[in-house]
Amino acid sequence: MQPKREKADETVKQMQWFEKLDFYDNPFSIDTDIEDELIGVDDILDELYYRVESGSIVFLEGQAGTGKTAVLKKVIGRFMGSKQVIFFDCKEIPDKRLNIERLMFERYGTIGKLLRLTPKNMILLLDNVPALSKKNTERAKFFFDQDFIKAIVLTGKSYSRLSMSEGIKERIGSRVIKLRRLTPEQVVELVNYRLGDAKLMNEETVKTIFKRSRGNLKRFLEYCDMACQIAVNSKSKRVKTKHLKKLFGGGDE
């Protein structure tokens, strides 16, 4: 049984639960901010930074909810000062066709177009790359070989099942970086970081919600948001068992 959100009064605009606790933004927002702390990925970030700086094509592998997009945002934060970082979510392409050349030239703006500046040493970050066609991945390799693109980071659920051109697979080689699901202990650390001094959930509550999410980080954050909404709206200072029962229906899923 999936949890249901409480229905808000459509006639009266109410404060969000986190606003009542003086949070500026929802601490459980799925859209992780660049400055947010990522738990358990320090080694992965170090390797990604190294691969980008050394000029490689890398595949970042991870199941849904493991934080692939959040990791890419960290890469953007690290290299965005050069104004040569291109990020694109391939799921936004309805027909699997992406004009990579246009993305590169758009980075130079109107002046760049007028001066006919040639892209050089761009960093291409393609999220959810299974949505791309083989032709697109081969095109990305072409621009990489011509030094228009310095480094490419691709993400997806499974590298072995990915339909890509053999050329780009050769360029990737063994450079497949795997993201693992967070452990319950790491999730507790994440929640403590996000909530700060607001002790809304104890360790047992966090682990219970994480178990319900089946290890999916996005689903876990959504459940935390919903649980806190129920607790705060009932004027409780902490998420309790009764709130989880209301969220999950009190029975097994």
Rank of each mutant, 00 (worst) to 15 (best):
G250N: 10
H243G: 12
K178L: 00
D127G: 02
L244N: 00
N192H: 14
F28S: 10
N121G: 13
L98M: 10
S236Q: 09
E61Y: 08
A64E: 08
F248C: 06
D42Q: 04
K178A: 01
S236P: 06
I44P: 03
S236V: 02
L117S: 11
P27G: 03
H243M: 07
P119G: 10
D31W: 11
G251P: 04
L103E: 13
F28V: 09
F220G: 01
D145P: 05
E203H: 07
K246Y: 12
I30M: 09
R194A: 14
V239K: 05
R107Y: 01
D25Y: 12
I57H: 08
V206D: 04
L117K: 15
K83A: 12
R161H: 14
A231E: 00
K73I: 00
I177G: 02
V71S: 04
G62E: 05
T69W: 03
E6W: 12
L154W: 07
R51P: 02
R97S: 02
E101S: 13
M201F: 02
A8I: 13
G112A: 01
R107F: 04
K73L: 09
V191A: 08
S213V: 14
I230E: 01
K235R: 13
P3G: 06
L124V: 00
E6V: 15
F142A: 11
Q63D: 12
G55W: 03
L125Y: 03
G109Q: 07
S165V: 02
E170A: 15
E92A: 10
I93F: 08
D36E: 15
R139Y: 00
A231G: 03
F142R: 10
L244Y: 08
Q2Y: 00
Y50E: 15
L190H: 02
L45Y: 11
E10D: 11
F18R: 10
Y193M: 08
G40P: 06
A151M: 07
S54G: 01
N202S: 00
S174N: 15
G249N: 12
K150G: 04
Y49A: 01
L38P: 03
F88C: 07
Y50H: 11
D36C: 06
M122D: 01
K83Q: 15
M80C: 11
E19D: 15
K113N: 13
I111D: 13
D95T: 15
R97A: 00
A131D: 04
K246C: 07
F87P: 09
A70T: 11
E61M: 13
D22I: 00
R181E: 13
K178I: 00
L60V: 07
A198R: 04
K245R: 14
L195N: 03
T66D: 01
K134S: 11
R219W: 08
V52P: 00
E166R: 12
L182K: 09
G249T: 14
I149S: 07
S82V: 08
I86V: 15
M226N: 09
E35Q: 11
K96S: 13
E185W: 05
K74A: 03
S163I: 11
L221M: 15
V129H: 04
G62L: 07
I34L: 12
K240H: 13
V153N: 09
Y223M: 05
E61N: 13
A140I: 14
